[in-house]
Design a protein around this nucleic acid. Sequence first.
DNA 1: GTCTATAACTTGATAGAC
DNA 2: GTCTATCAAGTTATAGAC
Lengths: 226, 226
Amino acid sequence: MRLNRGPTATREPADTKERILAAAERMFSRQGYAASSLRSIIADAGVNLAAVHYHFGSKEELLRAVVHRRVGPVNEERLRLLDEYERAARGKRLPVRKVLEAFLAPAIRLSREPDGAAMVRMVARLYIEDALGELAQHEFGEVIERFNAALRRSLPELPERELLLRTYLGMGAVALAMRGPQTFPGPLSEQLKDAGEAEILRGLLDFLSAGFRAPWRRGRGSRCAS
Amino acid sequence: MRLNRGPTATREPADTKERILAAAERMFSRQGYAASSLRSIIADAGVNLAAVHYHFGSKEELLRAVVHRRVGPVNEERLRLLDEYERAARGKRLPVRKVLEAFLAPAIRLSREPDGAAMVRMVARLYIEDALGELAQHEFGEVIERFNAALRRSLPELPERELLLRTYLGMGAVALAMRGPQTFPGPLSEQLKDAGEAEILRGLLDFLSAGFRAPWRRGRGSRCAS
DNA sequence: GTCTATAACTTGATAGAC
DNA sequence: GTCTATCAAGTTATAGAC
């Protein structure tokens, strides 16, 4: 966290270290970790290769740095929102949708800012690609734990194991939705290219909250309409 | 597609070409495409590096070959099941859950066989990693089109665009569920390690069919229980 | 068909001048 | 702090003997 000298423009990166971080974010978000070479990053950043090792030491350390500085603030906002919603509920059971909203809204909102979009996609790609490794636990462990507990309170009749499974599946939908629209086969992809963040968020909330609230081990007949 | 000489054992790969395909499948399923070098593949297969280029020409062609021979049969089974269900429905509206089952069951069933597990994970990883490229369209285009049409008939009151969005989200849940259990943060991951294919399939069907049937643009109150 | 040997290139990382 | 130059190891791919 470094002070900007000069006007606080969103673009025009401050110093070399900052340019490397920004470029790494862009490359990782587009190609993932394994496919992003340091050389492609420094070309994009317009800096020298040695600068990366001077400032970060290694490619892996660069990954840690670029993830850490971005994920922290988003997760703080997530926890803050969840607290706020739970306080507002005043002991009443918090709807699943609200819990999910507390988790999703900060990332979705961030992804509307020009720089934020790359960051959100990057984290999704890295998670998916399995490049986070132990970072996943360090950066997300507390948040996952906390939201899992909240969901458990919102769905008390759902067995713990089933909740866990649904959380796992839900994370998949979220991660791929945030990774961006590449490779969705067929002309279908074209029609979703212009989907705004608000539409995605609403779609995610409808889809996921229904999924979490799905009846468990019910009989053949469905309990909902359609 | 080559005939086996000798007993039709599941293991003990037949010839060099077959061993390369099997090894590539394993490596791609574990590390993805970009992170799997040809050298790691030939080491795993116990063959020479030049053999890869002799039989396939390039790493990319190897990818095409390994995907093509596996995806075809699964997709045929998917289409066959969907036809069967639709015929059995005799013009009545097919439940969403049945459509999803026709899509998921063949892959899940295959993933229980020792070789099949690697194959299913591989395709999921490649799709997620965006390594399929135009292969996604060639191999999955028809199936996606066909199942999208079936879902449209099963959910006539759902706007086309909303269905498309939900299909996109659902594919994410499916892909990550099939990729395998790596990197799910925290001790939660441990508890899902022993989840059998049957449990995953049932969980997916509950979760997804509820998600697809979620009311669209409904008011604040929920229509389902809990 | 399978091997060795090697070409041609890319990768992450470092040493040392400035 | 930033550069050039370079290393050592890794990568895909190929030529040619057997």
